[in-house]
Design a protein around this nucleic acid. Structure first.
Length: 387
DNA sequence: CGCATTTGACCAGCGC
DNA sequence: GCGCTGGTCAAATGCG
């Protein structure tokens, strides 16, 4: 006791010293934290720039390769482009935030834009980003919607038969009845195309940059775990929906997020990564229904370098699944190493466990925190593989 | 109080 | 025609 009191008497003097030391230490730590934060910001910027440059380069390389490989396919287009049921050489292109009328008509313009470093151009591009996809006829971009409709009408008849929900019917009734039939078909196609993203993260909602409003939850028969239904709330009329469901009881850390539809509004930058991925996958699916898988695979390797890609669809629901739970960073070349398989099971029975298939895609952001270091490490891995 | 979420009811499609 | 199932609606409830 006495000893403790003595100590406590001595302590105040030391305490003053210690406190000032601590304050200094605290200040130093704060300064360090601030420094690290600034560094973090710089690294983020650097990473962003690197990724942009990388994507730009990747597109250019892919385009060159595609031009070399696609000569025969384009010849087919010249012969067959006005036959409804024949395969067409289709160009898969991302439509980022443009309405069909606004779509850039020339492919060259699109690639020029991608490599355009002009600040103004970049700003314009950013302001008009949205999740969407488009399939372009190489020869005639103005007839792309017509082609899109014919394509699905002829190849996947079931898809045209139904409007998938009551809401769709209501919407169709409420909206202007003088709408072009073509547009309705186009909308139906876009709505029916689904892109699943399987991601391993604690939070069921993938942080895809969009705002979602939950409108329902249901326990499906095939999976006892509840499935949540969301619709995009960034725009009052945005038709995009998504479903989120845990993959299974034994693997509750993985979520399957299914996107359906095309945003009718610009997306924030954070959403564009997801938009690009899902759009590309959807484009692939759409084109894969009728076009040759070789050109499709070449086009897809465009968007999913370094990743194993496997896609398939079923007769009832054309669905692409991006599996983020199995990342693959070990590939060495973006084009040659992206293994690709396309399996359409219109006649085959679906797999017992799931009707969907997997497509690895690591570019998406989940809410699982990623440190700048790990991001940079991933980036370096990719870039070193690219060299 | 306004907005988001929850949850039971309802509806349409599909298979038998 | 009937039942099952997935998807959506909308009133009730919760929350900031």
């Amino acid at each position: 006791m006495i000893k403790e009191e003595t100590v406590s008497c001595i302590q105040p003097l030391d305490g003053v010293m210690e406190e000032s030391d601590k304050e200094e230490e605290l200040d130093a730590t704060k300064a360090k934290v601030e420094k690290v934060r600034e560094e973090n910001e710089k690294l983020k910027l650097l990473l962003s720039t690197i990724l942009n440059n990388y994507n730009s380069l990747q597109m250019q390389v892919s385009e060159v390769i595609r031009q070399q490989q696609g000569a025969s396919t384009e010849l087919d287009v010249d012969h067959d482009h006005d036959k409804d049921n024949d395969d067409l050489g289709v160009d898969i292109s991302l439509r980022l935030g443009r309405s069909p009328e606004q779509t850039v008509s020339k492919r060259e313009e699109k690639f020029d834009k991608v490599s355009d470093d002009n600040e103004e151009g970049t700003r314009k591009k950013r302001s008009a980003l949205a999740l969407g996809f488009q399939i372009q006829n190489c020869e005639d971009s103005t007839s792309k919607l017509d082609y899109l409709c014919r394509q699905v009408k002829n190849v996947n008849n079931a898809e045209n038969k139904c409007v998938s929900s009551r809401k769709d019917v209501k919407t169709a009734r409420n909206e202007n009845h003088h709408q072009d039939v073509l547009e309705e078909h186009d909308q139906a196609i876009l709505k029916k195309t689904r892109v699943c993203v399987k991601a391993a993260c604690e939070d069921p909602s993938i942080n895809d940059g969009c705002q979602w409003r939950k409108y329902g939850q249901k326990t499906a028969k095939t999976n006892p775990l509840p499935r949540a239904y969301y619709r995009c709330s960034m725009s009052s009329n945005c038709p995009v929906r998504k479903q989120v469901q845990r993959c299974g009881e034994e693997d509750t850390s993985a979520f399957m997020t299914t996107y359906e539809g095309t945003h009718d509004h610009p997306l924030p930058m954070e959403a564009t990564h997801m938009a690009a991925g899902t759009s590309a996958a959807a484009s692939l699916l759409q084109s894969g229904v009728s076009s040759s898988s070789s050109s499709t695979s070449a086009s897809l390797s465009y968007f999913f370098p370094f990743h194993h890609i496997s896609i398939s669809t079923t007769n009832s629901h054309p669905t692409v699944t991006l599996d983020l739970t199995r990342p693959n960073y070990t590939n060495q070349s973006p084009i040659s190493s992206s293994s690709f398989s396309l399996n359409f099971s219109s006649s085959d029975p679906p797999p017992p466990s799931s009707q969907d298939h997997t497509l690895n895609f690591s570019g998406l952001r989940t809410q699982a925190p990623l440190s700048t270091d790990s991001l940079m490490a991933r980036c370096r891995t990719r870039l070193s593989g690219h060299q």
